[in-house]
Amino acid sequence: MELIDRYLVLVGFGETGWGALLLSAAAMTLGVSVCGFLTGTILGSVITFMKLSRYMVLRWLADGYTTILRGVPDLLVIYLFYFGGSAFLGYIGGLFGYHGFIGMPAFFTGTLALGVVSAAYQSEVFRGAFKSVAGGELEAASAVGMRPWPKFRRIIAPLVLRYAIPGLGNTWQLVLKESALISVTGLVELLRQSQIAAGSTRRPFEFYLTAVVLYLVITWASSIVFRHLETRTLRGTRRAL
């Protein structure tokens, strides 16, 4: 009992509690994940277009992108953007006569790294979803005289999104868990905040356990949201199974 009381004071919202900081760090985790995921959606759609293109070079480039980004550890990608970005900023600074170290903003690094990695996964999800759009529906759109852009906006995008939602849900969970790696760049998200709290109170077990619980709450809640989205987009469709 005493143990639980002490734990509640530690992660609570009192004078010596870390509750508020942990919650705002969880919000940071959510923020960087959402930004990274959306970046990945935009980049992923571009890559899907390349994969479905009629030009071999574009298809080849897009396939290479997915192969490399899915085969390399995410931590390496984060290092590339963090240190590579800083070196690039330093070079730009050098052009303007500034010769000091310019650090990459951690949030931007995180968004970029998560976006670039998840684009590889999302492009595969979109490609799979596009393959399940019935050819007849595309023909029907052309038959009623739709130009490419209205056809994309009114027919292709809604249908692809409908089929892509389960896959996007998986990718979102991946991004969420990957966001913990951004802590190596010093962005104060959930894991980094737990590290700080663990360091200053010397109670690592309690804080990492709390972090695990908060991550579980986020993943659990987002799985509910995605399930809801899935049933919503499937209104008016009939399934064999």
Partner: peptide, 23 residues
């Protein structure tokens, strides 16, 4: 499965390496 798939591997690693050091 819910616990180990729902939380990041890095946090699990920290919990085991740093967290259990407390005991």
């Amino acid at each position: 499965v819910f616990v180990f798939r729902g939380s990041p591997l890095l946090v699990q690693m920290f919990l085991i390496y740093y967290g259990l050091g407390q005991f």
